[in-house]
């Protein structure tokens, strides 16, 4: 009877300890799962926040660009047109030497008006939306090629289709950012632009033959134009890969699934 009692107590003790250990192990497993879930949620929240922030920045930037565009179009070019007309009227009643200079000045003003109008169009969201991505890039390529700063070639593969106003605008801004970087930093002579339209894939490739840069430079330049390109691409559901090394130019590729819906 006594032995039965002690056996019972030993069994109960063992069971209790086993239960205790199991409970603690179960708690640890639950806790780790909860940690993972929370981490994932936090990362999602941060990603959403970054997206929202970038979206707001882009909206503000677009508003500013639109404002500058309308100012150039409605104010500065109007004043220059008036200057051009005035110069025309002055030129009619004066001696030949001065008249030639005035005509040359008038032509320069006319050229400035044309350039400013083109610039105004490239800044305006409405203009980009109405013209479409390819046409807007073509215009910009013409404008820059005319300047003689760099030689840009544009190629297209596949039948073009609309990617949506917002996405085309973002892609055009990526193009502008790249062009700006190429002109300012790369010292490139050629820039090649390729637009590839597949059924479920769109690829924009921008390749220059400039000085290039190391991977470290890209890593260290958070918030720079290059980082902006990646952020903007992610905002429209795409991915941007930047491939460069010193002396070997820079190749930027933006890949996008046109069928994938993106909030922005």
């Amino acid at each position: 009877m006594k032995d039965d009692g002690i056996n019972l107590v030993v069994i109960a003790a063992s069971l209790l300890l086993a239960l205790l250990v199991c409970s603690v192990v179960y708690f640890v497993v639950l806790y780790r799962n909860k940690q993972l879930k929370n981490k994932k949620e936090q990362e999602e929240l941060e990603a959403n926040f970054r997206q929202e922030l970038l979206k707001t920045q882009l909206e503000v930037q677009e508003e500013t660009l639109n404002y500058i565009s309308s100012e150039i179009h409605d104010n500065i070019t109007q004043i220059l047109s008036f200057v051009k007309l005035t110069l025309g009227s002055i030129a009619s009643g004066i001696e030949e030497g001065k008249k030639t200079k005035i005509i040359e000045t008038r032509e320069l003003v006319a050229q400035t008006i044309t350039d400013l109008r083109d610039l105004s169009k490239s800044l305006s969201f409405e203009h980009i939306a109405s013209q479409g991505l390819i046409r807007t890039i073509e215009k910009e390529v013409e404008r820059v090629n005319k300047s003689g700063l760099i030689e840009i070639s544009l190629e297209q593969e596949g039948n073009s289709y609309s990617l949506g106003e917002q996405r085309e605008l973002v892609l055009f801004r990526i193009f502008q950012e790249t062009l700006n970087n190429t002109l300012k930093h790369a010292g490139a002579k050629h820039l090649k632009i390729m637009l590839q339209y597949d059924t479920d894939l769109f690829i924009l490739t921008l390749k220059d033959d400039g000085s290039g840069f190391s991977a470290e430079t890209l890593e260290n330049k958070s918030g720079s134009g290059l980082r902006n390109i990646e952020n903007r691409a992610s905002l429209i559901g795409g991915t941007a890969t930047i491939d460069s090394s010193p002396g070997k130019g820079c190749n930027i590729k933006v890949v996008l699934n046109p069928l994938k819906q993106q909030l922005y």
Binding site: I6, A13, L20, S23, V24
Partner: peptide, 25 residues
């Protein structure tokens, strides 16, 4: 917390074993 849970739950067992042994062994 594990220490407290461990000690507190085994305390019941300790006391019951102590009573049992004192009485029968």
């Amino acid at each position: 917390n594990t220490a407290i849970l461990f000690f507190s739950t085994t305390m019941f067992l300790n006391l019951s074993l102590m009573n049992y042994y004192r009485k029968y062994h």
